[in-house]
Amino acid sequence: MLRESGRLTFQRLQQRLARRGTGAVEAARQWPAHYVVFNLLHASTDLTSSPYARRRAALEALFANH
């Protein structure tokens, strides 16, 4: 969840997760969530034992067309 300043806010995410029904729909409109990936541990193969450079390359390749 991002603030107007562009920083992440865990508090807004918690507020959104606590809502149900129409309140959840309104919260989703008001505070859209974004999935942020920092590492790739499994794609078509287990990468957990791979060096960071290989995991990073696999992550970049996964999102190259987006």
Rank of each mutant, 00 (worst) to 15 (best):
R3G: 12
R3Y: 05
E4S: 14
E4C: 12
E4W: 10
E4Q: 15
S5E: 08
S5N: 13
G6A: 01
G6S: 06
G6R: 02
G6P: 03
G6Y: 04
R7M: 12
R7L: 10
R7D: 06
L8R: 13
L8M: 10
L8V: 11
T9H: 12
F10D: 14
F10Y: 14
Q11F: 14
Q11G: 13
Q11L: 15
Q11R: 15
R12C: 11
R12Q: 14
R12V: 03
R12L: 15
R12M: 08
L13R: 11
L13H: 13
Q14P: 10
Q14R: 15
R16K: 12
R16N: 08
R16Q: 12
L17H: 08
L17Y: 06
L17N: 10
R19Q: 07
R20M: 01
R20F: 06
R20I: 03
R20P: 01
R20K: 08
G21Y: 04
G21P: 00
G21Q: 03
G21H: 07
T22V: 03
G23N: 14
G23D: 15
G23V: 10
G23H: 13
A24W: 02
A24H: 03
A24K: 05
A24F: 04
V25G: 00
V25K: 04
V25N: 00
E26R: 13
E26N: 05
E26Y: 00
E26H: 09
A27R: 09
A27V: 03
A27F: 07
A28L: 04
A28D: 08
A28M: 05
A28R: 06
Q30S: 07
Q30V: 03
Q30E: 12
Q30H: 05
Q30L: 05
W31G: 01
W31M: 06
W31L: 00
P32S: 02
P32Y: 03
P32K: 07
P32Q: 06
P32T: 04
A33C: 13
A33R: 13
A33D: 11
A33F: 15
A33I: 15
H34I: 11
Y35C: 05
Y35H: 07
Y35E: 06
Y35G: 03
Y35A: 10
V36I: 06
V36W: 01
V36N: 00
V37K: 05
V37F: 08
F38M: 04
N39D: 13
N39W: 09
L40E: 02
L40W: 08
L40V: 07
L40R: 05
L41F: 08
H42S: 00
H42P: 01
H42I: 00
A43Q: 02
A43K: 04
A43W: 03
A43D: 02
A43R: 05
S44L: 07
S44N: 10
D46E: 02
D46I: 00
L47M: 04
L47H: 03
T48H: 07
T48F: 02
T48G: 12
T48D: 04
T48I: 05
T48N: 04
T48Y: 08
S49P: 01
S49M: 08
S49N: 11
P51S: 00
P51Q: 04
Y52M: 14
Y52E: 14
Y52S: 11
Y52D: 12
Y52I: 14
Y52A: 15
A53D: 13
A53C: 08
A53P: 04
R54F: 09
R56Q: 12
R56D: 10
